[in-house]
Design a protein around this nucleic acid. Structure first.
Ligand SMILES: [Mn+2]
Ligand SMILES: [Mn+2]
Ligand SMILES: [Zn+2]
Ligand SMILES: [Zn+2]
Lengths: 124, 124
DNA sequence: ATAATATTGCAAGGCTGTCGCATTAATATA
DNA sequence: TATATTAATGCGACAGCCTTGCAATATTAT
């Protein structure tokens, strides 16, 4: 299943790159100049996640936010860094702070989702 | 707005106490012997959260899970501990591990939501 | 007992995310 | 360049989660 180059892919990636933050499907759709179906955007986003281009974060509103994988290499697949969601500007950004934890013996962690909510620097 | 004692409140609290883990509205409803409306359960749960009886966790499925406040005193209102959601038994439990992070200057954190996903000890 | 009002049930609605299927378009091949 | 292959898309529909307005009910205070 080889990927193909499409206007949708370019548009989505373009929006996320320029934004420099994580965005929801809805927010992405609003920023894209051309009209693209909702389901298609989700499919594109999920494919990017599969390919390691993006990573997905679940915020406290229960919604999915997608962010460009910046410093996520093969050894860092789990994106174990904190995220910050501002309740004022609704922005969700990746923080440099790495997640560290200890779990009881016998537990296997496959994924990490850490989101801090509050007011960001700009909105304070 | 003083709280009143109702069968619904007792039932919900009873289920959560016996379970000893976090549960979703759906799971709670299934465990309650009497028939209670979905909206009512949500209202009861949210009121408990407001009153500091429960705390709410958003898992990677985007759903809300409610857990009894165990070691959450006044100085620990933000429930800054990790949670673990098992993909096999669907259980979401509070971990003893405390969340610690550093955020850029000017940011104000009001809430913390950290969920680790994987396979728990029982299901390994 | 009666009044005040917190709580509930019901119905409805909004929003998010997914899926099947027919159609379109990107890529490989001749 | 023309054709074949099949990945990607649009559309419609759907399920699930959570919330809200409003009338009815039940709890608590007087
Ligand atoms: Mn991130
Ligand atoms: Mn907890
Ligand atoms: Zn902000
Ligand atoms: Zn398990």
């Amino acid at each position: 299943m080889k990927r193909r180059q499409t206007p949708t892919k370019s548009a989505v990636l373009d929006v996320l790159t320029k934004a420099g933050k994580a965005m929801s499907q809805n927010a992405i759709e609003q920023e894209i100049p051309i009209d693209i179906n909702r389901a298609t955007i989700y499919r594109v986003l999920n494919r990017f996640c599969d390919d390691g281009i993006l990573h997905k974060v679940i915020a406290e509103d229960g919604k999915q936010y997608f962010a460009l994988c910046d410093r996520c290499d093969d050894t860092h697949k789990q994106h174990q860094h904190y995220h910050f969601k501002c309740t004022v500007c609704e922005t969700l950004e990746c923080l440099p702070s790495e997640v560290s934890f200890s779990i009881p013996q016998g537990y296997v962690v496959e994924n990490v989702n850490c989101v801090l909510t509050g007011v960001c620097k700009n909105c304070a």
